[in-house]
Design a protein around this nucleic acid. Sequence first.
DNA 1: GGGCGGTACTG
DNA 2: CAGTAC
DNA 3: GCCC
Length: 580
Amino acid sequence: MVPSRPSSKLYQIKSKKYDEYGARVTSSFDKSVSHVLIDPEWDGSRTLKYLHISAGDIRPEIDKGTIHFVRDSWPSACIENKQLIPESPDYTVQLYSPAPSPETTPEPEVSQKLVQTVISPEKPPKLKKRDISTSSNTSLSPEPDTPKQTAIDDLNPVEASGANTSIENKAEKKAQDGSGNDELDSVIQEAELQEHAARFLSDDEIEHALQTQRKKYSAPYSRPKRTSDGRVLKGNWDTFLCMKAGEDNIAKPDGPNALVINILSLMLHHYEAEGDQWRTLAYRKAIATLKKQTVPVRTAAQAVKLPGIGSRLADKIEEINKTGDLKRLKYTQGEGKFEVLELLKRIYGVGNKTANKWYSEGIRTLDDVRERKDLTANQQTSLDHYEDFAERIPRDNVTKHFERVRDAVHEIDPEIEATAMGSYRRLQPDCGDIDIILTKRNASRHDLTVTLAKLLDVLFEQGFAKYTFGGIEANSMRWLGASAHPDDGNKWRRMDILLVPWEERGAAFIYYTGNDIFNRSMRLLAQKKGYRLNEKGLFLAPHDRKSAGAVGPLVCGEDEEKIFETLGVPNRPPHKRIIG
DNA sequence: GGGCGGTACTG
DNA sequence: CAGTAC
DNA sequence: GCCC
């Protein structure tokens, strides 16, 4: 393959597939090579240069038809069409400028190595495969997968729906004798899949989280389909540890559906980079499902039965299984784009839209960004202190920042209660930013905003507060800014100060303690129980779904404990609210 | 065909 | 209003 | 993208 990048995920995936069809991929260019698969971006001369060959060296071999220079889409096209596609402008790469070709060079009928491969079980094997390299030991004939294919239905792949439907009463029963965390944990697992930040975890880490959740608890509130496993996940987590210890390996899970999972992960990657929130979610769920299968999911018909996999993904799965490739992927690949977007989005005020726009305009580095004239004030400031903001804040330093704020606000009003939230309250050893809630019994919103304004005057006066990203407007209930503390090396840190009415502090504490995944879980659980939860309180869900207020009467807002209780789950100390 | 969280701030 | 952050 |  040219260029040859054996370390790349795609390379590994493809070689594996080609191998299944009896070919052998080699990284050396020698006489054993029959086909050179060339990246679409590359032309003939670049390829020659890359292979360190001058035209004359190889010309005879080409003319003899023993070496073919083709696009790397050629193998999958052949597999798809169930025949060797003869040389054509579509797939053949011209090495020399004016093609002197003695026209149609038909595929030599050297057809050795007839590896039997069954594409569709009904039809007799039609595609005769010959290997791509001429090396002789490739006669491994993969066993026809027909038997497996029929077997899969009997085996009842995990979560295939059909079988177990009427479980409602079972679920009810479980809910009743429901011990402890069942419900919350079951929604946690669901929420994890939606968590955007989860992309920072390896697939294996996500999977591991799911496994431990599932092993420990049943899921009375999840859809019936989802309840019957138990045998599925097991043992994988050893490999997880190994994978994790390894150095530069992109998680490359083995398993019956590794190929499909890997390719779909690339699609996921792509949509994530594009900011397509909902497709991303769908791919995440589908991949999670596939990872739980203990048998290969080969056909679209099998795939659609699984939860989270609809007709479109099912077709893609079948295509991947047949061709080892996904046409769609070719259009979606951008080398390194994802990493650049991640870099850009760490600038405050740069989200998916802006990052993609900039990327399309050629921005690749922070220095590129610095040359732009159209940065907003927030973007500019965030960029100026990019390194500081990117750095994690040691817990003790968070304490310093917090105490400074607490002390200052107590100078103004000793009755204000100040609490550090976020990862600090979850007892993490370091934090991404500093979140502080200010609240006070019997204080109106206005009282609080007045206090905040005074507080900020003081903090800016001290030189502790450095910049306001937002929220200082008239009577805003929050301040989003930056602070710097001498005991923290005067590094600029992101700090949020939230004003919370006394009656809402319970809900606010839950919300601002997080983590994000935990919050999603809580919201989901609330919904399933007929409530709505936000940072202001726990409300009854409105009967008419889409009314303006969107929420019913307040059930509880001021007591964290009571909100948990109402939802029927035991309160968890903040440090147990770290999910994922 | 709508929901997938809901709200507040910036430009 | 779109985009972004929380 | 999927589910309802």
